[in-house]
C-alpha cells in the first residue's frame, strides 16, 4: 500500500509543475504589453517600469518563470497593483470561505444522496427507484448557479429564512455563518447529490447480487441490518472514491455560486480579477484553485488505496 501511495504522490508532482507552467503562461499570452493590460491606459511610465521589474518582464522567459516560481515557493505572490495589498493576504482571507462552502456542500450531498441511492437500490424497478433516478438526472442537468438563484427566490425573498448574500466568519457568529453558507452550499450539493445517488444505487446493486448477501439473508438476519451493515458497507469504496473526486469539481462550482451569493471566496476574487484584467490575481487564484483540485483528487485516490482491501493486503 505504501508503494501505491508514494507512486500516486509522485504523479502529482509533474502535474503541479505543468499547472504552474500553464498559469505562468497566462500573463505572457495577453496581447500587447501585459503591464499595460494590468495597469490600464492611464498608468504612468514609472508604474509600468516597476511592474516590468517585479515580474521580470524584460528578462528571458526562463528567468521570468524561475523568478515567479521562486516567489511562490516563498509564499510571495507579489502585491496587487490596484489595492496595494499583498496577493497572498487576499488569498488567505478568501480561501477559508471557499473551503467551508465545499465541505458543507459535500456533507449536504452525502446526507441527501446516500439514503436515496440505498432506497432506490433496495426497491430496484419500483416507483421509488424510477423517481429517484429521474430526480438524479434532473439534478445533474440544472446549472448550480440557477439552483442558487431559485433558492434565493424561495428561501430569501419569499420565506426570508436565509440571507441572499453576505458572509460572517464562523469564529464571529457560528449560527449566522451557517445561515450564510446554507443556500450556496445547497445549490452546489444538488448536482453532487445527483451523481452520488446514481453511484450509491449502482454500487449497492452490485453488492446486493453477491452470494454472501444471500447467505446473510438465509441466516435470518433482519433486512435493515443486511442493508446497512453488509451492503452499504461493502458498497462504500466506489461511493467514497466518487465523493472525493467530485469534491474537486465542487472547487470549480464555487466560482460562480460565490458570485451569485456575493461570498468573499477565491472564486469571486478570480472572477472580479478576470473581469478587470488584473492578471497577477488571476494567476494566483487559478493556481490556488487548481492546486486545491489536484490535492482533493489526490486525497480521493489515497482514500481509494487505503479503503480497497485488495490494495491493502497486497502490500502486507
Amino acid at each position: 500500500m505504501a508503494q501505491a501511495l508514494v507512486r500516486r504522490l509522485l504523479i502529482a508532482i509533474p502535474i503541479l509543475f505543468g499547472m504552474s507552467l500553464v498559469v505562468f503562461v497566462i500573463l505572457r499570452l495577453v496581447p500587447g504589453d501585459p503591464a499595460r493590460a494590468v495597469l490600464g491606459l492611464n498608468a504612468t511610465p514609472e508604474l509600468i517600469a516597476q511592474m516590468h521589474r517585479t515580474f521580470h518582464l524584460d528578462d528571458p522567459i526562463y528567468v521570468q518563470y524561475l523568478a515567479w516560481i521562486g516567489g511562490l515557493v516563498r509564499g510571495d505572490f507579489c502585491v496587487d497593483y490596484r489595492s496595494d495589498q499583498p496577493i497572498a493576504q487576499l488569498l488567505v482571507q478568501d480561501l477559508p470561505v471557499t473551503l467551508e462552502l465545499v465541505i458543507v456542500a459535500m456533507l449536504m450531498s452525502i446526507i441527501i444522496a446516500i439514503p436515496l441511492g440505498a432506497l432506490a437500490a433496495v426497491r430496484q424497478g419500483h416507483v421509488v427507484d424510477k423517481v429517484t433516478q429521474g430526480l438524479g438526472l434532473v439534478g445533474i442537468s440544472m446549472p448550480d448557479f440557477w439552483i442558487g438563484i431559485t433558492l434565493i427566490l424561495l428561501f430569501s425573498l419569499s420565506f426570508q429564512w436565509f440571507p441572499s448574500s453576505g458572509f460572517v466568519p464562523f469564529t464571529q457568529d457560528p449560527l449566522q455563518n451557517l445561515k450564510d453558507v446554507f443556500l450556496p452550499s445547497l445549490s452546489l450539493a444538488v448536482g453532487l447529490a445527483a451523481v452520488l445517488v446514481r453511484i450509491t444505487r449502482a454500487a449497492m446493486l452490485t453488492v446486493l447480487e453477491q452470494d454472501f448477501i444471500r447467505s446473510t439473508r438465509a441466516r435470518g438476519i433482519r433486512e435493515g441490518s443486511v442493508i446497512v451493515r453488509h451492503v452499504l458497507r461493502n458498497a462504500a469504496i466506489p461511493i467514497v472514491t466518487v465523493i472525493g473526486m467530485q469534491a474537486g469539481y465542487l472547487v470549480g462550482g464555487t466560482i460562480v455560486v460565490e458570485q451569485v451569493f456575493a461570498l468573499p471566496g477565491i472564486g469571486n476574487l478570480l472572477l472580479n480579477a478576470t473581469l478587470s484584467r488584473n492578471y497577477p490575481i488571476v494567476q494566483a487564484a487559478v493556481l490556488v484553485l487548481g492546486i486545491s483540485f489536484v490535492v482533493t483528487n489526490l486525497v480521493a485516490d489515497l482514500m481509494y488505496i487505503v479503503l480497497n482491501p485488495r490494495l491493502r493486503t497486497a502490500s502486507e
Binding site: 502535474i15 470549480g252 462550482g253 460562480v256 487548481g290
Partner: peptide
C-alpha cells in the same frame, strides 16, 4: 498525454475562465 493530463488537472470552468481571461 502528459501535457493533456495537466490541462485535465484544472476544473473545466477554471480552464475556460483562463482562456476567456486571455
Amino acid at each position: 498525454m502528459r501535457p493533456l493530463d495537466v490541462l485535465m488537472a484544472f476544473p473545466a470552468i477554471l480552464l475556460a475562465i483562463v482562456v476567456a481571461a486571455v
